[in-house]
Simulated assay, not measured.
Amino acid sequence: MGNGKTSTKHTVLEILRESRAAVSGEEIAQKTGVSRVSVWKAVQALQAAGYDISSGKNGYTLTKDICDSLYPWEFGASENLIAHFPQTKSTMIEARRIAECEEAEGRQNARIVTADSQTDGHGKNNAPWTTTKGSLACTIITKNRIPVAHSQRLMMAAQIAWAEVLEKSAGRKFFVRWPNDIWTAQGKTGGILDELSASASVCRWLNLGIGINITEKPERFSEVSDCVFPDGTAITRKTLLFQFWKEFKVLETLALEDSAALSDRWNSLCCDIKKTVCLTDADGLPTGKQAVFNGVNALGFASLTFVKETRIFPPGTVSFVKTKF
Rank of each mutant, 00 (worst) to 15 (best):
G2Q: 04
T6N: 11
T6D: 10
S7E: 06
T8S: 10
T11A: 09
V23L: 10
V23Q: 05
G25W: 11
E27K: 07
I28W: 08
Q30H: 13
Q30A: 13
K31A: 08
S35D: 15
R36N: 14
V39I: 15
Q44K: 13
Q47H: 07
D52W: 02
G56I: 03
L62P: 02
K64L: 14
S69Q: 10
P72W: 00
F75N: 01
G76L: 00
N80L: 05
L81E: 02
P86R: 15
K89N: 06
E102F: 00
E105I: 02
N109E: 09
R111E: 00
V113C: 03
T119Q: 02
T119M: 03
D120S: 08
D120H: 12
G121V: 08
G121P: 14
G123F: 13
L136A: 12
R145D: 12
V148K: 07
R153V: 03
M155A: 04
A157T: 04
A161W: 01
L166M: 04
S169Y: 06
R172K: 14
W178S: 06
K188N: 06
D194K: 02
D194Q: 07
D194P: 08
S197T: 04
A198L: 11
A198H: 09
V202S: 11
L208T: 04
I214L: 15
I214T: 02
T215W: 05
K217S: 10
P230Y: 00
L241D: 04
W245P: 04
A255I: 05
L256M: 10
A261C: 15
S263P: 06
D264F: 14
V277D: 06
A282S: 09
D283L: 07
G284N: 07
T287A: 09
G288E: 12
Q290Y: 13
A291H: 06
N297Q: 12
A298E: 15
G300K: 03
L304M: 13
V307H: 14
V307N: 15
R311P: 04
I312W: 09
V318M: 15
V321G: 05
K324S: 15
